[in-house]
Design a protein around this nucleic acid. Sequence first.
DNA 1: GAACGATTGCAACTCATCGTTGCAATCCAA
DNA 2: TTGGATTGCAACGATGAGTTGCAATCGTTC
Lengths: 208, 208
Amino acid sequence: MQWSAPPMTATRRAPRRDAGRPRGAPVAEAVLAATLRELASAGVEGLSVERIAREAEVNKTSIYRRWPTREALVAAALEGVAAQITGQLPDTGSLRGDLLALVGAVSDLVGSPLGRGLLRAALTESAEAAVAALATDQLARGTAGPARAIVARAKARGEWARGARGDMVVHALVGAVIHRAVLEHGALDRRWLGSLVDLMLHGALPRE
Amino acid sequence: MQWSAPPMTATRRAPRRDAGRPRGAPVAEAVLAATLRELASAGVEGLSVERIAREAEVNKTSIYRRWPTREALVAAALEGVAAQITGQLPDTGSLRGDLLALVGAVSDLVGSPLGRGLLRAALTESAEAAVAALATDQLARGTAGPARAIVARAKARGEWARGARGDMVVHALVGAVIHRAVLEHGALDRRWLGSLVDLMLHGALPRE
DNA sequence: GAACGATTGCAACTCATCGTTGCAATCCAA
DNA sequence: TTGGATTGCAACGATGAGTTGCAATCGTTC
Protein backbone atom coordinates (compact mmCIF):
# COMPACT_ATOMS: atom_id res chain seq x y z
CA MET A 1 0.00 0.00 0.00
CA GLN A 2 1.20 3.47 -0.79
CA TRP A 3 0.90 6.34 1.67
CA SER A 4 1.12 9.77 0.18
CA ALA A 5 -0.14 11.14 3.49
CA PRO A 6 1.24 10.63 7.01
CA PRO A 7 0.14 7.51 8.87
CA MET A 8 -3.39 7.26 10.17
CA THR A 9 -2.62 7.83 13.81
CA ALA A 10 -2.12 11.58 13.38
CA THR A 11 -1.31 14.02 10.63
CA ARG A 12 0.46 16.41 12.99
CA ARG A 13 0.48 19.21 10.48
CA ALA A 14 0.46 22.14 12.91
CA PRO A 15 3.50 22.28 15.24
CA ARG A 16 1.44 23.34 18.27
CA ARG A 17 1.35 26.96 19.26
CA ASP A 18 2.06 27.22 22.94
CA ALA A 19 0.74 24.15 24.61
CA GLY A 20 2.23 23.31 27.94
CA ARG A 21 4.08 26.30 29.36
CA PRO A 22 2.42 26.77 32.76
CA ARG A 23 1.78 30.43 33.40
CA GLY A 24 -0.02 30.25 36.72
CA ALA A 25 -1.35 33.43 38.23
CA PRO A 26 -1.82 35.47 35.04
CA VAL A 27 -4.20 32.81 33.76
CA ALA A 28 -6.40 33.07 36.82
CA GLU A 29 -6.44 36.86 36.69
CA ALA A 30 -7.37 36.99 33.03
CA VAL A 31 -10.11 34.40 33.49
CA LEU A 32 -11.66 36.10 36.51
CA ALA A 33 -11.61 39.50 34.82
CA ALA A 34 -13.23 38.01 31.72
CA THR A 35 -15.80 36.34 33.96
CA LEU A 36 -16.82 39.70 35.42
CA ARG A 37 -17.23 41.13 31.92
CA GLU A 38 -19.24 38.11 30.84
CA LEU A 39 -21.35 38.47 33.97
CA ALA A 40 -22.15 42.03 33.00
CA SER A 41 -23.05 41.26 29.40
CA ALA A 42 -24.76 37.88 29.66
CA GLY A 43 -25.76 37.51 33.31
CA VAL A 44 -25.32 34.43 35.44
CA GLU A 45 -27.73 32.24 33.51
CA GLY A 46 -26.39 33.26 30.13
CA LEU A 47 -22.76 32.85 31.12
CA SER A 48 -20.65 30.82 28.72
CA VAL A 49 -17.36 29.28 29.79
CA GLU A 50 -16.28 28.97 26.18
CA ARG A 51 -16.75 32.70 25.60
CA ILE A 52 -14.78 33.45 28.77
CA ALA A 53 -12.01 31.17 27.54
CA ARG A 54 -11.84 32.93 24.18
CA GLU A 55 -11.94 36.33 25.86
CA ALA A 56 -9.15 35.43 28.29
CA GLU A 57 -7.14 33.67 25.56
CA VAL A 58 -7.07 30.50 27.59
CA ASN A 59 -8.25 27.02 26.75
CA LYS A 60 -11.65 25.96 28.00
CA THR A 61 -10.14 22.93 29.69
CA SER A 62 -7.88 25.06 31.86
CA ILE A 63 -10.88 26.88 33.27
CA TYR A 64 -12.78 23.70 34.05
CA ARG A 65 -9.75 22.27 35.81
CA ARG A 66 -9.38 25.20 38.19
CA TRP A 67 -13.06 25.88 38.83
CA PRO A 68 -15.05 22.67 38.52
CA THR A 69 -18.48 24.35 38.31
CA ARG A 70 -19.78 27.59 36.93
CA GLU A 71 -20.89 28.53 40.41
CA ALA A 72 -17.34 28.17 41.69
CA LEU A 73 -16.03 30.31 38.84
CA VAL A 74 -18.52 33.09 39.45
CA ALA A 75 -17.92 32.94 43.18
CA ALA A 76 -14.19 33.29 42.64
CA ALA A 77 -14.70 36.25 40.32
CA LEU A 78 -16.95 37.97 42.84
CA GLU A 79 -14.71 37.22 45.78
CA GLY A 80 -13.22 40.30 47.32
CA VAL A 81 -14.51 42.91 44.88
CA ALA A 82 -16.21 44.83 47.69
CA ALA A 83 -13.08 46.90 48.19
CA GLN A 84 -13.24 48.12 44.59
CA ILE A 85 -16.87 49.18 44.75
CA THR A 86 -16.51 52.71 46.04
CA GLY A 87 -12.85 52.78 46.94
CA GLN A 88 -11.77 55.40 49.43
CA LEU A 89 -14.18 58.29 49.75
CA PRO A 90 -12.71 61.59 50.94
CA ASP A 91 -13.92 63.63 53.89
CA THR A 92 -15.08 66.76 52.09
CA GLY A 93 -16.13 68.56 55.26
CA SER A 94 -19.82 68.78 54.45
CA LEU A 95 -22.64 66.26 54.17
CA ARG A 96 -23.49 67.51 50.72
CA GLY A 97 -19.93 67.07 49.52
CA ASP A 98 -19.66 63.61 51.04
CA LEU A 99 -22.92 62.47 49.47
CA LEU A 100 -21.88 63.91 46.12
CA ALA A 101 -18.69 61.89 46.29
CA LEU A 102 -20.72 58.81 47.18
CA VAL A 103 -23.19 59.09 44.30
CA GLY A 104 -20.31 59.91 41.98
CA ALA A 105 -18.57 56.69 42.95
CA VAL A 106 -21.81 54.75 42.60
CA SER A 107 -22.51 56.19 39.16
CA ASP A 108 -19.00 55.26 38.07
CA LEU A 109 -19.62 51.78 39.40
CA VAL A 110 -22.89 51.14 37.58
CA GLY A 111 -21.16 52.18 34.36
CA SER A 112 -18.41 49.62 34.80
CA PRO A 113 -18.47 45.89 33.97
CA LEU A 114 -17.83 45.15 37.63
CA GLY A 115 -20.89 47.09 38.73
CA ARG A 116 -23.24 45.73 36.12
CA GLY A 117 -21.97 42.22 36.74
CA LEU A 118 -22.60 42.59 40.45
CA LEU A 119 -26.07 43.99 39.87
CA ARG A 120 -27.06 41.23 37.49
CA ALA A 121 -25.59 38.57 39.74
CA ALA A 122 -27.50 39.96 42.72
CA LEU A 123 -30.73 39.77 40.72
CA THR A 124 -30.50 36.06 39.99
CA GLU A 125 -32.76 33.63 41.77
CA SER A 126 -33.62 30.01 42.38
CA ALA A 127 -30.85 27.78 41.16
CA GLU A 128 -28.07 30.28 41.64
CA ALA A 129 -29.12 31.54 45.06
CA ALA A 130 -25.60 31.18 46.44
CA VAL A 131 -24.22 33.42 43.72
CA ALA A 132 -26.91 36.01 44.35
CA ALA A 133 -26.15 35.98 48.06
CA LEU A 134 -22.46 36.46 47.41
CA ALA A 135 -23.05 39.39 45.06
CA THR A 136 -25.48 40.94 47.51
CA ASP A 137 -22.96 40.58 50.29
CA GLN A 138 -20.22 42.23 48.28
CA LEU A 139 -22.49 45.11 47.31
CA ALA A 140 -23.59 45.65 50.89
CA ARG A 141 -20.07 45.43 52.20
CA GLY A 142 -18.83 47.91 49.64
CA THR A 143 -21.46 50.56 50.36
CA ALA A 144 -22.29 50.11 54.04
CA GLY A 145 -18.86 51.09 55.32
CA PRO A 146 -18.50 54.42 53.50
CA ALA A 147 -22.15 55.20 54.21
CA ARG A 148 -21.73 54.76 57.95
CA ALA A 149 -18.65 56.97 57.94
CA ILE A 150 -20.48 59.73 56.06
CA VAL A 151 -23.44 59.68 58.42
CA ALA A 152 -21.21 59.63 61.49
CA ARG A 153 -19.32 62.69 60.31
CA ALA A 154 -22.57 64.50 59.49
CA LYS A 155 -23.98 63.79 62.92
CA ALA A 156 -20.82 65.07 64.56
CA ARG A 157 -21.22 68.31 62.62
CA GLY A 158 -24.91 68.59 63.52
CA GLU A 159 -25.87 68.11 59.88
CA TRP A 160 -28.40 65.39 60.45
CA ALA A 161 -32.12 65.43 61.21
CA ARG A 162 -33.09 63.50 64.32
CA GLY A 163 -35.43 61.02 62.70
CA ALA A 164 -33.48 60.31 59.51
CA ARG A 165 -31.97 56.86 59.04
CA GLY A 166 -28.56 56.75 57.49
CA ASP A 167 -28.95 53.46 55.68
CA MET A 168 -32.19 54.66 54.17
CA VAL A 169 -30.59 57.77 52.75
CA VAL A 170 -27.97 55.59 51.11
CA HIS A 171 -30.59 53.16 49.82
CA ALA A 172 -32.53 55.99 48.24
CA LEU A 173 -29.48 57.59 46.68
CA VAL A 174 -27.99 54.40 45.33
CA GLY A 175 -31.40 53.17 44.24
CA ALA A 176 -32.11 56.37 42.38
CA VAL A 177 -28.80 56.16 40.55
CA ILE A 178 -29.48 52.55 39.61
CA HIS A 179 -32.98 53.37 38.51
CA ARG A 180 -31.74 56.25 36.43
CA ALA A 181 -28.74 54.53 34.85
CA VAL A 182 -29.52 50.87 34.55
CA LEU A 183 -33.28 50.77 34.20
CA GLU A 184 -33.80 54.03 32.37
CA HIS A 185 -30.49 54.37 30.53
CA GLY A 186 -30.46 58.06 31.42
CA ALA A 187 -27.36 60.22 31.65
CA LEU A 188 -25.68 60.73 35.02
CA ASP A 189 -24.09 64.16 34.77
CA ARG A 190 -23.00 66.23 37.72
CA ARG A 191 -26.08 68.44 37.61
CA TRP A 192 -28.45 65.50 37.88
CA LEU A 193 -26.47 64.01 40.77
CA GLY A 194 -26.36 67.40 42.47
CA SER A 195 -30.11 67.83 42.24
CA LEU A 196 -30.57 64.33 43.61
CA VAL A 197 -28.39 65.01 46.63
CA ASP A 198 -30.16 68.32 47.26
CA LEU A 199 -33.49 66.57 47.15
CA MET A 200 -32.32 64.04 49.71
CA LEU A 201 -30.97 66.81 51.91
CA HIS A 202 -33.98 69.12 51.86
CA GLY A 203 -36.92 66.90 51.03
CA ALA A 204 -39.84 67.39 48.69
CA LEU A 205 -41.99 69.44 51.04
CA PRO A 206 -41.62 73.22 51.10
CA ARG A 207 -39.69 74.55 54.11
CA GLU A 208 -42.67 76.61 55.26
CA MET B 1 -50.93 -13.88 6.84
CA GLN B 2 -51.82 -13.39 10.45
CA TRP B 3 -51.20 -10.14 12.29
CA SER B 4 -51.12 -10.43 16.00
CA ALA B 5 -49.59 -6.97 16.13
CA PRO B 6 -50.47 -3.82 14.23
CA PRO B 7 -48.70 -3.26 10.91
CA MET B 8 -45.13 -2.12 10.87
CA THR B 9 -45.81 1.49 9.99
CA ALA B 10 -46.94 2.34 13.51
CA THR B 11 -47.85 0.51 16.67
CA ARG B 12 -50.33 3.19 17.73
CA ARG B 13 -50.56 1.89 21.23
CA ALA B 14 -51.60 5.10 23.02
CA PRO B 15 -54.91 6.58 21.81
CA ARG B 16 -53.62 10.18 21.98
CA ARG B 17 -54.56 12.34 24.89
CA ASP B 18 -55.86 15.58 23.55
CA ALA B 19 -54.07 16.28 20.33
CA GLY B 20 -55.81 18.56 17.95
CA ARG B 21 -58.60 20.41 19.70
CA PRO B 22 -57.70 24.03 19.01
CA ARG B 23 -58.15 26.06 22.13
CA GLY B 24 -56.97 29.43 20.88
CA ALA B 25 -56.81 32.27 23.35
CA PRO B 26 -56.30 30.23 26.55
CA VAL B 27 -53.13 28.78 25.07
CA ALA B 28 -51.67 32.20 24.41
CA GLU B 29 -52.60 33.43 27.87
CA ALA B 30 -51.09 30.45 29.63
CA VAL B 31 -47.89 30.67 27.59
CA LEU B 32 -47.41 34.40 28.13
CA ALA B 33 -48.06 34.10 31.85
CA ALA B 34 -45.56 31.25 32.07
CA THR B 35 -43.10 33.34 30.09
CA LEU B 36 -43.30 36.12 32.67
CA ARG B 37 -42.67 33.64 35.46
CA GLU B 38 -39.75 32.15 33.57
CA LEU B 39 -38.43 35.63 32.96
CA ALA B 40 -38.48 36.28 36.69
CA SER B 41 -36.76 33.05 37.64
CA ALA B 42 -34.28 32.54 34.82
CA GLY B 43 -33.90 35.91 33.13
CA VAL B 44 -33.86 36.60 29.44
CA GLU B 45 -30.63 34.75 28.73
CA GLY B 46 -31.59 31.72 30.78
CA LEU B 47 -35.08 31.47 29.35
CA SER B 48 -36.07 28.00 28.15
CA VAL B 49 -38.97 27.49 25.77
CA GLU B 50 -39.26 23.86 26.81
CA ARG B 51 -39.71 24.84 30.46
CA ILE B 52 -42.34 27.40 29.48
CA ALA B 53 -44.14 24.72 27.48
CA ARG B 54 -44.15 22.31 30.41
CA GLU B 55 -45.27 25.06 32.78
CA ALA B 56 -48.11 26.15 30.49
CA GLU B 57 -49.06 22.53 29.71
CA VAL B 58 -48.67 23.20 26.02
CA ASN B 59 -46.53 21.53 23.43
CA LYS B 60 -43.24 23.17 22.55
CA THR B 61 -44.20 23.21 18.88
CA SER B 62 -47.28 25.30 19.52
CA ILE B 63 -45.14 28.01 21.07
CA TYR B 64 -42.66 28.07 18.21
CA ARG B 65 -45.49 28.31 15.71
CA ARG B 66 -47.03 31.39 17.29
CA TRP B 67 -43.81 33.18 18.26
CA PRO B 68 -41.02 32.28 15.85
CA THR B 69 -38.21 33.63 18.02
CA ARG B 70 -37.56 33.94 21.72
CA GLU B 71 -37.40 37.67 21.33
CA ALA B 72 -40.91 37.71 19.84
CA LEU B 73 -42.18 35.58 22.71
CA VAL B 74 -40.68 37.81 25.37
CA ALA B 75 -41.89 40.91 23.59
CA ALA B 76 -45.42 39.52 23.48
CA ALA B 77 -45.28 38.66 27.17
CA LEU B 78 -44.09 42.16 28.05
CA GLU B 79 -46.56 43.88 25.77
CA GLY B 80 -49.13 45.88 27.59
CA VAL B 81 -48.14 45.03 31.15
CA ALA B 82 -47.61 48.72 31.96
CA ALA B 83 -51.23 49.01 32.98
CA GLN B 84 -50.75 46.30 35.62
CA ILE B 85 -47.65 47.84 37.15
CA THR B 86 -49.22 50.18 39.66
CA GLY B 87 -52.85 49.94 38.66
CA GLN B 88 -55.11 52.80 39.72
CA LEU B 89 -53.70 54.82 42.58
CA PRO B 90 -56.23 56.64 44.74
CA ASP B 91 -56.20 60.35 45.54
CA THR B 92 -55.66 60.21 49.29
CA GLY B 93 -55.77 63.97 49.74
CA SER B 94 -52.17 64.36 50.95
CA LEU B 95 -48.78 64.01 49.37
CA ARG B 96 -47.70 61.63 52.11
CA GLY B 97 -50.71 59.41 51.54
CA ASP B 98 -50.25 59.43 47.78
CA LEU B 99 -46.58 58.53 48.03
CA LEU B 100 -47.35 55.78 50.52
CA ALA B 101 -49.81 54.31 48.06
CA LEU B 102 -47.18 54.55 45.34
CA VAL B 103 -44.43 52.79 47.26
CA GLY B 104 -46.94 50.21 48.43
CA ALA B 105 -47.83 49.41 44.85
CA VAL B 106 -44.17 49.30 43.86
CA SER B 107 -43.29 46.98 46.72
CA ASP B 108 -46.14 44.70 45.71
CA LEU B 109 -44.81 44.78 42.17
CA VAL B 110 -41.22 43.84 42.98
CA GLY B 111 -42.55 40.89 44.95
CA SER B 112 -44.49 39.57 41.98
CA PRO B 113 -43.23 37.51 39.03
CA LEU B 114 -44.31 40.32 36.73
CA GLY B 115 -42.18 42.86 38.54
CA ARG B 116 -39.08 40.71 38.85
CA GLY B 117 -39.41 39.62 35.24
CA LEU B 118 -39.61 43.23 34.14
CA LEU B 119 -36.61 44.18 36.24
CA ARG B 120 -34.47 41.36 34.97
CA ALA B 121 -35.53 41.99 31.38
CA ALA B 122 -34.67 45.67 31.73
CA LEU B 123 -31.22 44.74 32.99
CA THR B 124 -30.27 42.66 29.95
CA GLU B 125 -27.80 44.01 27.45
CA SER B 126 -26.11 43.46 24.14
CA ALA B 127 -27.86 40.80 22.14
CA GLU B 128 -31.26 41.38 23.65
CA ALA B 129 -31.26 45.15 23.55
CA ALA B 130 -34.73 45.28 22.01
CA VAL B 131 -36.15 43.28 24.90
CA ALA B 132 -34.44 45.53 27.42
CA ALA B 133 -35.83 48.61 25.70
CA LEU B 134 -39.33 47.18 25.76
CA ALA B 135 -39.15 46.31 29.43
CA THR B 136 -37.72 49.72 30.24
CA ASP B 137 -40.51 51.37 28.29
CA GLN B 138 -43.20 49.41 30.12
CA LEU B 139 -41.67 50.23 33.49
CA ALA B 140 -41.43 53.90 32.66
CA ARG B 141 -44.95 54.02 31.26
CA GLY B 142 -46.35 52.28 34.33
CA THR B 143 -44.75 54.63 36.84
CA ALA B 144 -44.52 57.96 35.05
CA GLY B 145 -48.25 58.47 34.73
CA PRO B 146 -49.19 57.96 38.38
CA ALA B 147 -46.12 59.90 39.43
CA ARG B 148 -47.10 62.95 37.39
CA ALA B 149 -50.59 62.85 38.79
CA ILE B 150 -49.32 62.71 42.36
CA VAL B 151 -46.95 65.63 41.87
CA ALA B 152 -49.59 67.70 40.12
CA ARG B 153 -52.02 67.21 42.99
CA ALA B 154 -49.34 68.07 45.54
CA LYS B 155 -48.44 71.26 43.73
CA ALA B 156 -52.10 72.27 43.58
CA ARG B 157 -52.25 71.85 47.36
CA GLY B 158 -49.04 73.79 47.92
CA GLU B 159 -47.31 70.66 49.21
CA TRP B 160 -44.26 70.90 46.99
CA ALA B 161 -40.92 72.62 47.38
CA ARG B 162 -40.03 74.94 44.53
CA GLY B 163 -36.83 73.27 43.43
CA ALA B 164 -37.86 69.64 43.81
CA ARG B 165 -38.23 67.54 40.66
CA GLY B 166 -41.13 65.17 40.59
CA ASP B 167 -39.49 62.47 38.50
CA MET B 168 -36.50 62.49 40.79
CA VAL B 169 -38.62 61.89 43.88
CA VAL B 170 -40.16 58.91 42.14
CA HIS B 171 -36.78 57.62 41.02
CA ALA B 172 -35.46 57.81 44.54
CA LEU B 173 -38.49 56.13 46.07
CA VAL B 174 -38.74 53.35 43.52
CA GLY B 175 -34.99 52.91 43.52
CA ALA B 176 -34.89 52.62 47.28
CA VAL B 177 -37.61 49.96 47.25
CA ILE B 178 -35.77 48.03 44.57
CA HIS B 179 -32.49 48.32 46.40
CA ARG B 180 -34.10 47.16 49.60
CA ALA B 181 -36.14 44.30 48.20
CA VAL B 182 -34.28 42.93 45.22
CA LEU B 183 -30.66 43.65 45.99
CA GLU B 184 -30.78 43.35 49.75
CA HIS B 185 -33.66 40.91 50.21
CA GLY B 186 -34.92 43.01 53.08
CA ALA B 187 -38.49 43.13 54.33
CA LEU B 188 -40.84 45.83 53.07
CA ASP B 189 -43.25 46.42 55.91
CA ARG B 190 -45.42 49.49 56.35
CA ARG B 191 -43.12 51.06 58.90
CA TRP B 192 -40.12 50.89 56.61
CA LEU B 193 -42.08 52.35 53.72
CA GLY B 194 -43.45 55.07 55.99
CA SER B 195 -39.99 56.08 57.13
CA LEU B 196 -38.83 56.17 53.54
CA VAL B 197 -41.63 58.47 52.49
CA ASP B 198 -41.01 60.73 55.48
CA LEU B 199 -37.35 60.95 54.57
CA MET B 200 -38.22 61.97 51.04
CA LEU B 201 -40.68 64.54 52.33
CA HIS B 202 -38.48 66.19 54.96
CA GLY B 203 -34.94 65.47 53.86
CA ALA B 204 -31.90 64.39 55.82
CA LEU B 205 -30.88 67.83 57.03
CA PRO B 206 -32.30 69.15 60.27
CA ARG B 207 -35.04 71.76 59.85
CA GLU B 208 -32.96 74.43 61.59
C1' DG C 1 -74.22 15.66 7.69
C1' DA C 2 -69.86 16.24 4.89
C1' DA C 3 -65.92 18.88 3.74
C1' DC C 4 -62.44 22.09 4.75
C1' DG C 5 -59.16 25.03 7.09
C1' DA C 6 -57.02 26.05 11.39
C1' DT C 7 -54.96 24.50 15.56
C1' DT C 8 -52.68 21.30 18.43
C1' DG C 9 -49.93 17.14 19.99
C1' DC C 10 -46.28 14.03 19.04
C1' DA C 11 -42.15 11.99 17.51
C1' DA C 12 -38.20 12.45 15.01
C1' DC C 13 -34.53 15.02 13.18
C1' DT C 14 -30.29 18.43 12.80
C1' DC C 15 -27.33 21.36 15.00
C1' DA C 16 -24.88 23.84 18.58
C1' DT C 17 -23.03 23.96 23.04
C1' DC C 18 -21.80 22.03 27.54
C1' DG C 19 -18.82 19.59 30.41
C1' DT C 20 -15.45 15.63 30.32
C1' DT C 21 -11.48 12.84 29.03
C1' DG C 22 -7.04 11.20 27.06
C1' DC C 23 -2.86 12.65 25.35
C1' DA C 24 1.09 15.32 24.10
C1' DA C 25 3.88 19.37 24.90
C1' DT C 26 6.11 22.48 27.88
C1' DC C 27 7.97 24.64 32.09
C1' DC C 28 9.96 24.41 36.76
C1' DA C 29 12.20 22.27 40.51
C1' DA C 30 14.70 18.59 42.64
C1' DT D 1 18.15 14.17 33.96
C1' DT D 2 13.98 13.15 35.99
C1' DG D 3 9.44 13.96 37.72
C1' DG D 4 5.47 16.69 38.74
C1' DA D 5 2.47 20.38 37.48
C1' DT D 6 0.26 23.08 34.03
C1' DT D 7 -1.51 23.92 29.59
C1' DG D 8 -3.34 23.16 24.75
C1' DC D 9 -5.88 20.27 21.72
C1' DA D 10 -9.03 17.13 19.75
C1' DA D 11 -12.60 14.21 20.52
C1' DC D 12 -16.54 12.37 22.93
C1' DG D 13 -21.41 11.77 25.05
C1' DA D 14 -25.16 14.37 26.78
C1' DT D 15 -28.39 17.96 26.66
C1' DG D 16 -31.23 21.39 24.79
C1' DA D 17 -32.71 24.49 20.84
C1' DG D 18 -35.34 24.96 16.87
C1' DT D 19 -37.50 22.46 12.75
C1' DT D 20 -40.37 19.24 10.19
C1' DG D 21 -43.89 15.74 8.85
C1' DC D 22 -47.93 13.63 10.24
C1' DA D 23 -52.20 12.57 12.56
C1' DA D 24 -56.04 14.05 15.43
C1' DT D 25 -59.45 17.27 16.70
C1' DC D 26 -62.32 21.54 16.63
C1' DG D 27 -65.18 25.17 14.43
C1' DT D 28 -67.15 26.81 10.32
C1' DT D 29 -69.35 26.52 5.94
C1' DC D 30 -71.88 24.46 2.34
